[in-house]
């Protein structure tokens, strides 16, 4: 065990993968000499060489397209997109190629590409360094979408992603890259996909969150505890595949649900969760499902603190949901 920040845990996962598997390589903008603009790949080029930690031209289409070719050939490329906000030039590659290669080739060509990218707000990044567009990708059959919320999961989920047989979009909550430290197992630590984690048990309301919203949800739950409301906080971790069982079991227990994400509300990931509860847990529900999300606006700069869900807003929604009847 070592105490690490989330970004250090990402770095350790990459280091572990590069050390143990010669087919793993990293490519992206500024990932080599510079060690990544967030330092996620710090020191890796020095240790593993510029043929395995590759500084590429400034082209997301090129990065993901080249990673596809490498994966088809049998390597395990880990592509870094500098910010999720800049992934859109590669959207065609991700949606049309990465996600569909296995299917369209009748299983002949798996396309195991890992795309890591920092996402989300809270760093005063304005419209183009703050987005949380996981829903575009969760909507695409063939992709797995993973969002860690703490250092140990960041390492364990990333190593699972690198050794998975399917393409993975790995979203790193950059706002908490350095704000939390935690114990991280050494070596080849893996956390399986499709398993949510119950971060805090509670009997009154289920709160579903992921990524950088997790600490906010926990803070809200703790504040409410003194008011006599016991919130259960579930870290989804794996948006695709979703741990439906964990979601349903929690709501069957509490009868109340609050869904939290940074992304805008309309057709956001929370809509899918709410639909799931309507389809499979309606008779357990004692109150309407509540969503605490970003507003349906582009991500604002100066008023980021108004836009972004925080512990107070989550607590307000949980309180209201707990009392509704």
């Amino acid at each position: 065990m070592t105490d690490l920040t989330l970004v250090q845990a990402v770095n350790r996962a990459l280091h572990e993968a590069l050390s143990t598997d010669p087919d793993v390589l990293i490519l992206g903008e500024d990932v080599g000499v510079n060690g990544g603009v967030f330092r996620a790949t710090e020191g890796l080029q020095k240790e593993f060489g510029s043929e395995r930690v590759i500084d590429t031209p400034l082209s997301e289409t090129g990065i993901v397209g080249a990673a596809v070719g490498m994966a088809l050939y049998g390597l395990k490329p880990v592509a870094e997109i500098q910010f999720l906000d800049f992934i859109y030039p590669a959207f065609d590659q991700i949606v049309s190629e990465v996600a569909k290669f296995r299917y369209r080739s009748g299983g002949q060509y798996p396309c195991h590409v890992v795309i890591r990218t920092p996402y989300g707000g809270g760093i005063k990044g304005g419209l183009y360094h703050s987005q949380s567009s996981e829903a575009y990708f969760a909507h695409t059959a063939g992709l797995k979408v993973i969002v860690p919320s703490n250092p140990a999961d960041a390492k364990g989920l990333l190593l699972t992603a690198i050794h998975d047989e399917d393409p993975v979009l790995f979203l790193e909550p950059k706002r908490i890259y350095r704000s939390v430290t935690g114990e991280v197992p050494d070596g080849d630590h893996r956390v399986p996909f499709g398993q949510a984690a119950t971060v805090r048990e509670g009997s009154d309301v289920s709160v579903f969150a992921y990524g950088a919203m997790l600490p906010q949800a926990v803070q809200a739950a703790e504040a409410l505890s003194s008011e006599g409301v016991q919130a259960e906080v579930i870290d989804l971790r794996s948006l695709v595949p979703l741990d439906e069982k964990a979601v349903l079991a929690s709501v069957e227990k509490t009868g109340r649900a609050v869904i939290v994400h940074e992304a805008p509300r309309f057709c956001g990931y929370g809509a899918e969760l709410a639909a799931l509860l309507a389809e499979k847990a309606l008779y357990s529900l004692k109150a309407p499902v509540a969503r605490v999300t970003g507003f349906d606006t582009p991500f604002p700069y100066a008023l980021e603190h108004v836009y972004l869900p925080n512990a107070e807003r989550i607590a307000h929604a949980v309180r209201t949901t707990a009392r509704a009847s």
Binding site: G62, G65, A67, G69, A71, L72, S96
Partner: peptide, 18 residues
């Protein structure tokens, strides 16, 4: 696939792998 051009970057990536 159908989207034109996407195979061009794949060919380059596969060549890098080779």
């Amino acid at each position: 696939s159908s989207p034109v051009g996407t195979q061009i970057t794949h060919a380059v990536g596969a060549a890098m792998a080779a």
